[in-house]
Simulated assay, not measured.
Amino acid sequence: MKMFSRFLTSCLLVASVVVHAADDQAAAQLRKQLDAMNTLQGDFVQTTYDKKGAEQETSSGNFMLMRPGKFYWKTLEPMQQLLVSNNKTIWLYDPDLETVNERAFTDDLRETPALLLSSDIEQLRKSFTVTRDEKDTSAEKYTLTPKVTDGMFQHLTLVFKANQLTEFAIQDSLGQLTRCVLTNVQRNKTLPEEKFFFQPPEGVEILKD
């Protein structure tokens, strides 16, 4: 349950978010990058830092994502966990605890950092302002700030290299930073639909919110 809450409030998934602003060059550049990304898969290393910059924990695994709202995020180390969404239901499976936490993919969850990266672009057009770090010539780095300031996070940063999303990070409202580095990334490959629907193993406890 702790992992589930952390995911919803600090972001584990990757796919596409965009800000619409016809007169904003940075937003237009970001939109071009993300509009071209319908599916994404690869490996991740996720590290969480406290507000002073001290490393708190690191996890790694692999992921698949299909826009809108479908994702498969499998943590392998240090403990196995699986988070799955089919855009209607979200499942968190913990093999060690033999539990599955299940809840509906509702409108309030669409606003969490965890789901911004896999949500429908059309739903996110008016939610953010966007800036680009023009000083960094080795990558395209965009920072998105929610227009509603009482949300769960302060900033979302997306980093592209050679037109590929390689990193994203979220700073939450308490100053904690969660950074996800992506490797072996493949974009717009055909993904198996069954990966985005979870069938609980026999004998596990199902907890519904």
Rank of each mutant, 00 (worst) to 15 (best):
K2T: 15
F4V: 07
R6A: 04
F7K: 00
T9A: 02
L12Y: 14
S16E: 08
V18A: 13
V18Y: 08
V19E: 01
A22E: 12
D24R: 02
Q25W: 06
Q25A: 15
A28D: 10
Q29W: 01
Q29M: 07
L30H: 05
K32R: 12
K32E: 13
N38T: 14
N38V: 06
N38Q: 15
Q41E: 14
G42I: 03
V45Q: 04
Q46C: 05
T47H: 00
G53D: 12
T58G: 05
S59W: 07
G61E: 13
M64K: 08
L65M: 15
R67D: 07
R67Y: 09
P68V: 08
P68W: 04
P68H: 08
K70S: 12
F71E: 11
F71K: 00
W73R: 02
K74N: 15
P78R: 01
Q80S: 14
Q81T: 15
Q81F: 12
Q81A: 13
Q81K: 10
L83D: 12
V84K: 01
N86G: 06
T89I: 07
T89N: 07
I90Q: 06
W91N: 11
L92D: 14
Y93N: 06
Y93A: 06
Y93M: 04
D96I: 05
D96T: 13
N101I: 10
R103C: 11
A104E: 15
D107N: 07
D108E: 12
D108N: 08
L109P: 06
L109Q: 04
E111K: 05
T112C: 10
T112R: 07
P113I: 00
A114N: 11
A114V: 00
L115F: 10
L116F: 01
L117H: 02
S118K: 00
S118N: 11
S119W: 01
D120Y: 04
I121L: 14
E122H: 11
L124V: 03
R125M: 08
T131N: 03
D133N: 10
S138Q: 14
A139S: 15
E140K: 15
K141P: 02
K141R: 14
Y142S: 09
T145N: 07
P146R: 04
V148K: 06
M152F: 05
F153P: 11
H155A: 13
L156V: 00
K161Q: 11
A162S: 10
N163G: 11
T166F: 09
T166G: 06
E167C: 08
A169D: 12
Q171I: 14
Q171R: 11
D172C: 07
D172T: 13
S173F: 08
L177R: 05
T178F: 02
T178W: 00
T178L: 05
R179F: 00
R179I: 03
C180F: 03
V181A: 08
Q186E: 13
R187W: 08
N188S: 04
K189T: 14
K189D: 12
T190L: 11
T190S: 14
E193G: 10
E193P: 14
E193Y: 04
F196V: 02
F196M: 05
F198Q: 02
Q199K: 02
P200G: 12
P200N: 11
K208E: 14
D209P: 09
D209V: 06
